[in-house]
């Protein structure tokens, strides 16, 4: 069995990736909430972490790059050009759990990729088929939410661990009118209401699907990583303490390292309140901001500093 927290990413170095020119951050915890102003790079920071933690092989690396592109363009793009996606970066460097040196060569007759992943090296000229292999244990919940297929896949982990009753209990706590959650007829997520009738999940608010996606993903990401963009999306502030209790407890129980972004002060205060209640001193708050030279910087608040900031009513949502 894997040692507790053995796989956790503790630090990251990012160069030339999206808005990050030369960036370092260290001191991550088992659950990490990220705050910062608009366009400071909260999602890009999680994407770099996602690429790093997903990339056990070069094929995983390809999948993660395509996946973050797809997450950002779910609405606008029908058939993305894979070569365009893979060559959108001239070059970047990400080093955390893995060390990735990604270089696009545009000077030759044909586009070429040079990739170094730890000790593995590959040069790709796009003449041959590229294999995209997901690292299924690493999950990214973007702010558009899961597709039905993604939710079905995450729910399978709940079924494998016989946690359906727990999930139903937590769904019922979210909305007293809902009794059960099931995947019916292939990949059709449905909820049973008090009249015993099953209804498609799209008939309920977005918050319910987000709530279920997070709980299922915590089980699906055992001994791995879960990334949640805009965690408070669609969830009423009175439910936030319950959400954080679920996350802190399941993440600890199943050895999941969680990263989440938020803009919400209520969500940040709830995170502090629940961490204090559960005496979970391994949580971390990450504040992203820019210095006077417009370079992105991270302030990492371990438990004690974070609680102190909240108790003093200090602003931690960027500077």
């Amino acid at each position: 069995m894997q040692e507790k927290q053995e796989h956790f990413i503790k630090n990251i170095e990012i160069k030339n990736f999206k808005c990050f020119e030369d960036f370092k951050a260290e001191g991550f915890g088992h659950v990490n909430l990220i705050g910062g102003k608009n366009n400071v790079g909260k999602t890009a920071f999680m994407e770099a972490l996602y690429i790093d933690t997903s990339s056990q092989t070069i094929n995983n690396l390809f999948f993660s790059i395509v996946n973050i592109h797809r997450n950002r363009n779910k609405i606008n793009e029908e058939r993305p050009n894979i070569i365009d996606i893979l060559t959108q970066y001239q070059s970047f460097y990400i080093s955390g759990k893995n060390k990735i040196i990604y270089t696009v060569d545009l000077l030759g007759i044909e586009k070429k990729l040079d990739i170094k992943l730890n000790s593995e090296y590959e040069s790709i000229n796009f003449k041959n088929e590229i294999n995209f292999i997901p690292n299924k244990e690493v999950t990214f919940i973007d702010n558009y939410g899961f597709t039905n297929f993604e939710l079905k896949t995450a729910f399978e982990a709940v079924q494998r661990k016989d946690k359906e009753d727990f999930l139903d209990k937590k769904i019922n706590e979210f909305d007293k009118n809902i009794l059960k959650f099931k995947i019916i007829g292939g990949d059709n997520p449905q909820c049973q209401i008090k009249s015993k009738e099953y209804r498609d999940i799209v008939e309920f608010g977005d918050g319910l699907k987000h709530w279920i996606s997070i709980i299922c993903s915590l089980y699906a990401c055992e001994n791995s990583y879960l990334f949640i963009d805009e965690i408070e999306n669609g969830i009423h502030y009175t439910q936030l303490d319950e959400l954080w209790e679920i996350i802190l407890e399941i993440a600890d129980e199943h050895n999941v390292q969680v990263f989440a972004t938020t803009h919400s002060k209520e969500c940040i205060e709830s995170y502090a309140r629940v961490a204090k209640k559960l005496e979970d001193e391994e949580i971390v708050f990450i504040e992203l901001g820019k210095n006077k030279d417009s370079e992105i910087k991270a302030m990492i608040y371990p438990y004690e500093w974070f609680i102190d900031e909240i108790e003093q009513n200090h602003e931690v949502r960027g500077w």
Partner: peptide, 10 residues
């Protein structure tokens, strides 16, 4: 903690 804020321009 304050040193961290100074180093990051806050």
């Amino acid at each position: 903690k304050l040193k961290m804020k100074i180093d990051n321009g806050d």
